[in-house]
Each structure stands twice: as C-alpha cells, then as structure tokens.
C-alpha cells in the first residue's frame, strides 16, 4: 500500500476509535445512565438528570482525557525521534518536573492568582514548565550549532531529580492538608471539573499540534541521523527547535491540566508502532488519536474499577505502563 492510502486508513481507523471511545465513556460510570434519555430532546435539560451527568459531570473529564492523551502520546513520539531514543517520554526533558514544582509551590503557598479560567495551580505549573524548558534549552544550545541531544537528555534527567528534591523539600515544609493535595496532584487526575479548564489549555495544545504537523518527515530523517537529515535538505536546527518547543508546550499544558500522568507517552507510541510501523507521518497522527482513546479508556477503568470511589487515572496508567515498559526493555535486549 502506498503511503497515501496507509495514512487515510490509519487516520480513519484510529479517528473512529477515538470518537467512539469519547462517545461511549460518558455513558459509563458509577451511576448508570441511558443513552436514549441523554439525547431525548422532549425532556428539558434542567430536568434531565442523565443528560446533566453525561454533559456536565462526565464530558469535561472525557474531553480532558482525550486532549491530554493525544498531547502526551504525540509529544512522546516527537521526543523519541528528536533524542533518537525509543525509551524517551514527554517528561524526560524535565518539563513535567518543572510543572510539578510550580504546582506544589502554588499549593504550599496558597497562591490565589488566576488568569481567565486558569486557577492558581495550573497557572503555576505552566510557569514551572516554562522555566524548566528554558533551562534545558539554554543548556543544550550553542549559537549556530544543532542542539546537542545528549546534553538535552542529561540536562533533562538532572533537572528532573533536582526539581524532585525541591518538591520533597516543599512538601516537608508544608502542613498535612497541603501535602495531601500535593500528593493527589502528583498522581495525575482528569477530574478537571468543567469545560473551562480544558478550554484554557486548548490554545497551547493546538499550538503544539500545529507544530507537530510540520515535523513528521523531518523526524523520519533525524531518527536516521542528523547529518543524514541535513544532507537530504532538512533544516536540522529549526526542526529540533520546533520539536523541543512543541513537546514542551504539549507536556506543559497536559500536566497543567491533569497533573503528571505517566507512561501514556511511551506506551501509546510503542503500541502504535507495533500496529502501523515506524514511519512518523503515520505514527504521529495515529499516536495522537490512539493516545486520546487510550487515556479516556484508562480513565473509564479508574472511575469504575472500585466505584463509587474514583481513582486518579495516573495510578491506572502506571499500573499498566510499568510492566509494559519493562517488557519493552527486555524485548529490546
């Protein structure tokens, strides 16, 4: 099959899967609701409890899962190609640790600043993500040279542990209530409360996706080798900067919205590659769509597995993702 048909079939198939998951997920939960009642126009919305549960209680959470899943999975694909390392994740470069530190500080200090629909914690975590990305970028770039991907990787890993230490310190100084909130935030949870929070991060995520759309063929060539890419007409420095900016935006916005939900950025790209091959022009859109479906499905499990208690989805993805990651490691060696 030529690439055009493969792309159409893949996007069609994964797109349908994502849509179906997003449509079914709000129907399922601790309170059973009926599909026909949800869309029954004869009952006024104010009296239609099923429609209220579907649209107000569950839909924002499902939408958040879809955008966060798509963002983390595609950021994973892009970073794995940029770093030429299939085990990289959206959090490898320290952006999530920066975001987490921002959030933890906001919780510990009881910050009250808001920006439109963004409440203090997401706002602080976005700021933290920006700071982390700026530090890593500053360390890994020299004027007129391509980004050093090894410095990028090492700086990211180091920043991750340094920020973790700061998070522990902030927690140690905090009181019980703050510590509890911090721990819950660090678990990663899609209980965003309203459409407003999703809408607030949407421009950032759209920016990230627009950048990702420019990258696939450059990612193919750069994952073969940066010199190879340069001699085939890729502006390597520009592609690297765009990839870094896009993944930072995606990871920063996703973490601000839902906390650091682990493993989506590595499990999804690898599953997708097993199914559709490794060409980034197919892997990237397929991962975004499958990532959306995957996280929404994981969240469905999180909401129902020990209902009426709703688990943070980060616990479910980590329980699934940890063993999967180990399996990947063993399979590679």
């Amino acid at each position: 099959m030529v690439i055009r048909e493969r792309l159409a079939v893949t996007v069609g198939g994964y797109g349908a899967l994502a849509l179906l998951t997003c449509a079914v997920a709000p129907l399922v939960g601790s309170t059973p609701i009926s599909f026909s009642r949800v869309f029954d126009r004869s009952i006024p919305f104010a009296d239609n409890v099923d429609a209220q549960i579907f649209f107000i209680a569950r839909m924002p959470r499902v939408l958040a899962g879809a955008v966060v899943g798509a963002a983390l999975a595609s950021a994973g694909v892009v970073l794995q190609a940029l770093l030429r390392n299939p085990l990289a994740t959206p959090f490898t470069l320290g952006v999530s640790a920066g975001a987490a530190l921002g959030a933890v500080l906001a919780i510990a200090m009881g910050a009250a600043a808001t920006l439109g629909p963004l409440s203090p914690v997401p706002l602080a975590s976005l700021a933290g993500a920006c700071v982390a990305a700026a530090i890593v970028y500053g360390l890994a770039t020299r004027p007129g040279r391509p980004i050093s991907t090894s410095v990028l990787l090492l700086a990211g890993v180091t920043l991750n542990s340094f920020f973790s230490a700061l998070i522990l310190f902030a927690q140690y100084m905090a009181d019980f209530a703050e510590t509890y909130r911090t721990v819950r935030w660090l678990m990663g949870d899609l209980d965003v409360g309203s459409f407003g929070a999703v809408g607030a991060t949407l421009p950032l995520l759209m920016g990230a996706f627009a950048i990702f759309a420019l990258l696939p063929s450059s990612l193919n060539l750069m994952s073969v080798g940066t010199d190879v890419a340069a001699t085939r007409g890729v502006d390597v420095g520009r592609a690297q900067r765009l990839a870094f900016l896009g993944t930072s935006l995606a990871a920063g916005a996703a973490v601000a919205l839902a906390g650091p939900i682990g493993f989506v950025g590595i499990v999804v790209p690898h599953l997708v590659r097993l199914m559709v091959g490794v060409d980034h022009r197919i892997v990237l859109p397929a991962s975004a769509l499958f990532g959306a479906a995957f996280l929404v499905a994981c969240d469905l499990v999180a909401r129902t597995v020990i209902a009426p208690i709703e688990l943070p989805v980060g616990i479910v993805t980590a329980l699934l993702g940890g063993p999967f990651f180990l399996w990947l490691l063993v399979r590679r060696s």
Binding site: A81, R84, N220, V224
Partner: peptide, 13 residues
C-alpha cells in the same frame, strides 16, 4: 548526496 560511514536508524525502518 552523501553516503556516511555507518547508518544507525533509531527505529526499525
């Protein structure tokens, strides 16, 4: 065009 000494793609193309 260039033929480098060795080529190690990061993915299984």
């Amino acid at each position: 065009a260039v033929v480098p000494q060795e080529t190690h793609p990061a993915f299984d193309y």
